[in-house]
């Protein structure tokens, strides 16, 4: 599976990381090398092997349905850029989204 510039550009968009046009070629090279290296795995026979789903052998713990968290809007907004107060609460803000 060979990686091209268009694919890297698409992946970068999916990951929301701006890659300058001029950096694409270098990026293609780097990623191709790494992918070629990990493709060694093709040599491993894995027919009938279930993929590992967890490194621990316990079942999913479940908690009770009680309200035990939240209610600290100031802490939630304390690290935010451009928070907006509103009544007893407040909002995060981002550039306007057009739907």
């Amino acid at each position: 599976m060979s990686l091209d510039k268009a694919t890297v550009a698409r992946i970068a968009t999916l990951a929301r990381i701006r890659v300058a046009e001029g950096d694409l070629d270098r990026m293609v090279g780097e990623l191709r090398n790494i992918l070629a290296w990990v493709e060694q795995l093709d040599a491993v026979e894995t027919a009938g092997v279930d993929p590992m789903t967890s490194a621990v052998e316990v079942t999913l713990p479940q908690r009770d349905d009680t309200v035990s968290d939240g209610g600290y809007v100031d802490s939630i907004l304390a690290n935010a850029r451009e928070p907006v107060k509103s009544g007893a609460g407040g909002f995060f803000s981002v550039p306007k989204v057009v739907e």
Binding site: R63, V67, G70, G71, V73, S86, G89, G90, F91, F92
Partner: peptide
């Protein structure tokens, strides 16, 4: 998470 689900609370107070 343990945050409340009541409808209509002030913004980000049930987070």
């Amino acid at each position: 998470s343990g945050a409340a689900t009541v409808f209509g609370a002030e913004p980000n107070t049930q987070v």
